[in-house]
Each structure stands twice: as structure tokens, then as C-alpha cells.
């Protein structure tokens, strides 16, 4: 199994963090993983993206030319990355912020931002997307993602961990 993933959105949507949670969870499952961020002059409001590869064998290039899965969190990212989907790849779209017509056959749209708001924190849209990704693609276990969340957030922010876990579970339920 090798899954090449591109995650793209607006700076501040937690695109980098979403990639890092995938990477940490894959490491927990003893998989090979690489995480490569864009590191230009990205700022809040600009576009940000990262590339993650999860595999059962050693990974060559961390750079993803054609992705097996692309997660699109906002409109500008769709224009930039829809063409980077491999043939038969899986496109996952945040329909709260993307209203465009999708040409790709294998695409799923869910309102990640609105679901996150319902969970109590708009910033957890990235974790809703993570839930949807692992439900559709079966690349990681829910348990590993939750462990990573618990380790990532500091202990003073316990309530944040709970909101993130519920966001993840909402995402998993989307399938």
C-alpha cells in the first residue's frame, strides 16, 4: 500500500497540521511516511499545502506529482490542485467553501467547516476532513489519530482534544 496525498487550503485552516497528524499516526502504525510542506511566503489567508506519503515500504521522493488523494479545503486550492489527482484518484472537498462544479468522477463533497462549527470549533474542519479521508481510504486507524491528538495538544487544553476527537468522529461518520 502506498497512498500519496496532497492537502490544500487557506493559511490558517490547519492544512499543515492535518498532514502532520496523518504522518504521526502512520508512524504509530509502523508505516513509512514523509511529510513535505510548501515553505514559501505563506500567510493567513494565502494558499497553503502539504504533501504526505504513507506506505508499507520505504519512500523515495517525498514530492507528490500525482496524488492518490487530494483534500481541498477552499476554492483557490481546487483550481491549483485538481489537475494533480492521479487517474482514478480520490478528491475530497470542503463544500462549505467550494461551490465549483467538480469534473473528477471519484469526488466527495462534505461541508467540513459547517460540521466543525456544529462541533463547537470552526478550526476543527481539518479533523473532520481527516475523519472523512480515513473512512473512505482506509489508510489509518481512528485509534492512532486520536492518540496523536492527545499527544499533540498540551494538557491545559483538554477541552480542545475532546472537540477535535468529536470532529474526527463526525468526519468518519460521513461515509
Amino acid at each position: 500500500m502506498t497512498e500519496k496525498i496532497i492537502i490544500a487550503g487557506s493559511g490558517g485552516q490547519g492544512v499543515m497540521l492535518l498532514g502532520k497528524v496523518i504522518a504521526e499516526a502512520a508512524m504509530k502504525e509502523n508505516k513509512f511516511v514523509t511529510w513535505l510542506p510548501c515553505y514559501g511566503a505563506e500567510v493567513r489567508g494565502g494558499t497553503a499545502y502539504c504533501m504526505v506519503i504513507v506506505s508499507n515500504k520505504g519512500i523515495g521522493s517525498p514530492y507528490v506529482d500525482k496524488a492518490d488523494s487530494v483534500i481541498i479545503m477552499n476554492s483557490p486550492s481546487l483550481a491549483k490542485f485538481e489537475g494533480r489527482l492521479a487517474k482514478g484518484g480520490f478528491l475530497l472537498i470542503n463544500s462549505s467553501l467550494v461551490h465549483a462544479q467538480i469534473k473528477t468522477a471519484k469526488a466527495k463533497s462534505y461541508p467540513f467547516t459547517e460540521i466543525a462549527q456544529a462541533c463547537g470549533n470552526i478550526k476543527t474542519a481539518n479533523m473532520v476532513a481527516l475523519g472523512a479521508l480515513i473512512a473512505h481510504r482506509n489508510i489509518l486507524k481512528e485509534k492512532s489519530c486520536i492518540e496523536v491528538m492527545k499527544e499533540t495538544a498540551s494538557s491545559v487544553k483538554k477541552e480542545l482534544i475532546e472537540i477535535n476527537i468529536s470532529a474526527l468522529k463526525e468526519g468518519i461518520r460521513l461515509k
Partner: peptide, 10 residues
Amino acid sequence: DGMLAQMMEP
């Protein structure tokens, strides 16, 4: 180079 420096790996 920038790729090796910025990428994360276990």
C-alpha cells in the same frame, strides 16, 4: 537542500 530540510520523516 530545501526538500530534505523541510520534509518530516520518522
